[in-house]
Design a protein around this nucleic acid. Sequence first.
DNA 1: TTTGGCCTCTTTCCATCGTCAAGATTGGCG
DNA 2: CGCCAATCTTGACGATGGAAAGAGGCCAAA
Lengths: 204, 204
Amino acid sequence: MSPNKPRAYHHGDLREALVASGRKLLEEKGIRGFTLRECARRAEVSHAAPAHHFASMDDLLAELVRRGFAELTAAMTAEADRIEGEAAARLVGLGVGYMAFAAANPALFQLMFSREANRIELEEGEAGAGGIRRLQAAIVEELLADASGEVRQRMVDFAWASMHGFITLVLEGEIGGRDSSRALKSRGLAVLAAMAETVVRAAR
Amino acid sequence: MSPNKPRAYHHGDLREALVASGRKLLEEKGIRGFTLRECARRAEVSHAAPAHHFASMDDLLAELVRRGFAELTAAMTAEADRIEGEAAARLVGLGVGYMAFAAANPALFQLMFSREANRIELEEGEAGAGGIRRLQAAIVEELLADASGEVRQRMVDFAWASMHGFITLVLEGEIGGRDSSRALKSRGLAVLAAMAETVVRAAR
DNA sequence: TTTGGCCTCTTTCCATCGTCAAGATTGGCG
DNA sequence: CGCCAATCTTGACGATGGAAAGAGGCCAAA
């Protein structure tokens, strides 16, 4: 009952604790400041304990990436589903969800879309970035029912590139360095609107 | 004259040698595999020698980033200048130069536009990403001479976001994973064309 | 209930890293 | 010609990721 350090062996759910502390640490210090030992420290566990739950540091990072993609697609569909209007509006909604997730988890987002991540998680059924494209592709297909497959593919490229590029540049401080969050949101919406309009116009 | 290891002390131009080996190493191993000691090893110099030319590892990386931005803007203007046609075509040209540089130096490009880089090189007269926006802004201004400042700003956001997002997703393997370089180029050009068309159309 | 096995966690160790301090070497300036 | 400052090396420190070996606790089979 002593509140000092009663828990000795057997943490209970160390795996989840490591995922949680790892995620916080990632956002605090960035990927270069991310340390397995610090994760363990925050979970109040010895530095070698994580090895029993994650084969390596990259394995933990891969788990964070995996969960990130799940959350990201969830955020996108949630935002799109809130809009019951036209397909174009839903396409914008996907972008809003995308950008909101990225803004809330900048370091994780960057990790998810980093060259390093791809060298890591080549396993799994690719529930990652593929799902994002599929979400957009479904709406583009709806908008461009009569267009060729190639036109549709290029419009999906375009839609994804626009929203990804904008939020990426914002997170890096390259766009709107000292703008208010309000102004930034407005600029992001403008980009999404221009994107959706271009997609719609591809139908001739 | 013995070709073994004649050069002992005084490398000659260690700074440049470190920049060169560092750049190669960065592309080979990525930022997470980048090591100051390995840079020194490749320059055939002791592990502490770099300290006399770069205050820290981040200082070397900052130099790489600085040179990267110079090369990137040079590549963009070179490609745009090759085209003497309309402003819209030159806008596409800027994008071609941008993507070509990124494809040729993927790891450096990612470093240049990474959250980590921004924490590093807060010095200097910002000859970095600001120059890129200025290049695009000049052409957009030409195309949208009659538009409001806000419209122009949003079109620059849009132009930059499109080209940045596309090449970024390609480098990460999210777009066109197994496509030929030829096909990828075509898709990139399609994105740039759609982008330029959207900018032009913003003039009403 | 007891006991044996297995999973969890700790301790200890190793190679490597970035950085610092001190010493060795050299080129060039007086 | 000799000395100085710049350049490079050697050695050390603390921190990291990972491997190996041992200690501690849970649970199911007897």
